[in-house]
Each structure stands twice: as C-alpha cells, then as structure tokens.
C-alpha cells in the first residue's frame, strides 16, 4: 500500500513535468484521437469495399464470397505456419495467396494501401478476440 502510494506520487510528478515541457512528450487531445480513429475507420471502409469488389482479382470472385464479415480469416492467429506457403507467414502473405489463387489476380506489396486497408478491415471484424499467434 505504502509502496503503491509512492509510485503514484512519482507518476503524478512525472506527468507534471510533462505538462511543464509539452514539446518533448507524445501528447494528444480527444480531437486528435477522434480524427485518427476516423482515419482508421475510413481505411476499414476502403478495406470492406475491396473485400466485396469483383475488381480486386481477375475472375470476379470476391473475398466475401468465402469470408462473409471476414469470418474464418483468423487474423489473431498470425503469423503461423501456412501449408499453402510452406512456412510461417504473416497475414498479408496469406491474403496474397488468396488474391493469386481463388481470385486469380495479382498480389499486392506489403505496404500497398490496398493491402493495409484489407488488413484493417479483416482485423476490425475480429476485434475483441484475444491474440493467439500460431494457432490452428
């Protein structure tokens, strides 16, 4: 109890110091948070559009045909061993496998905004599920 009090006081002192010198800290406001969350949700929305777009691949097949609401994509289990790739792989490599195979299309670069949007959507649909990397 006594120890905890000390810690709390130290923490308070720490935050006071931060207030004293705003330029050295990662400080942000509610408005910042709102804006950033909006930007994330816009990315999720773009991801959802790609997820249901016949133009993402070459044969008109869309991701959502097999994965409604991105179900059974299990983003919380990556990286994991993926039989189709013969190695432990992150989610984006498996997305590319799907783009090349069921969708008969072209893969995306890891940092392609489309790939980021797809991952944002998939992960958002799975929010709240605990991380279990490697799970099968």
């Amino acid at each position: 109890m006594f120890k905890a009090n000390i810690t709390m006081k130290t923490a308070l002192l720490g935050s006071l110091l931060v207030f004293a010198n705003a330029s050295i800290a990662d400080e942000f406001t509610d408005a910042d948070v709102k804006r950033w969350e909006q930007q994330f949700m816009d990315t999720v929305k773009q991801g959802r559009e790609l997820w249901t777009s016949p133009k993402l691949g070459n044969n008109g097949v869309v991701c959502a045909q097999c994965h409604p609401n991105a179900a059974n994509t299990h983003p919380e289990t990556y990286p994991k061993f993926q039989k189709q790739l013969g190695k432990v792989a992150p989610l984006w490599e498996m997305i590319n496998w799907c783009l090349k195979n069921p969708l008969e299309g072209q893969p995306l670069a890891a940092d392609d905004p489309k790939m980021i949007a797809l991952q944002a959507y998939v992960t958002h649909e799975r929010r709240g599920v605990k991380l279990e990397p490697g799970k099968h």
Partner: peptide
C-alpha cells in the same frame, strides 16, 4: 465453396443448433 459457421463472426449473436457437429475447416488450396 464452404461457409464459416456463424460463430466464427465475433461481432454477432447466432443460434447454431446445439445438435450440430460442425464440418471440418477447409484448406483453400
């Protein structure tokens, strides 16, 4: 193609019959 069982969608309530033994998950290859 197969569909996920509805419980695989984490954001909604569903009522899969309790009797049902699910089919195996698929290898998309």
């Amino acid at each position: 193609w197969p569909w996920p069982y509805p419980q695989a969608y984490a954001q909604a309530e569903q009522y899969l019959p309790k009797l049902t033994v699910p089919m195996n998950r698929a290898d998309p290859f």
